[in-house]
Amino acid sequence: MQVRVQDTPFDFGAEANRFAAGAGGAGAVVTFTGVVRDAAAGAMTVMEIEHYPGMTEKALQQIAAQACARWELTDTLVIHRYGRLQPGDQIMMVATAARHRVAAFEAAEYLMDYLKSRAPFWKKEILADGAADWVAAKEADEDALTRW
């Protein structure tokens, strides 16, 4: 189980390959990558991600541990960036490894659902004209937790 919170970019391909190579006995590896979307259709220049150092790492560890308790996973990886990102940049990734694909898929979705609403990150969109807006949490993201 690995959790990393960093301001620097990560190499998704290299991370996925290293994870798959180290996931001993796994027959299935699932990865998901979140990419900065330009919600303002061309107007957004920067997405600033703030987080709560200390609590962030703890919350991600807890979420990953819950996934490991619920599914038979051989390994999990969570990487989440903070700081200033641009549209097209990769914000975060999760990877799960299991003997069979159902567990790997479900655990990856579980990690994503919890990470969106229970890990202390906040996104701010900075537009070309200098205006800035905090991204509001979506009710659908909170509702997504009820399925688990």
Binding site: Y52, K116, P120
Partner: peptide, 9 residues
């Protein structure tokens, strides 16, 4: 700590 609802991912 006080903060708005989280928006990770």
């Amino acid at each position: 700590a006080f903060f708005p609802p989280m928006t990770g991912g």
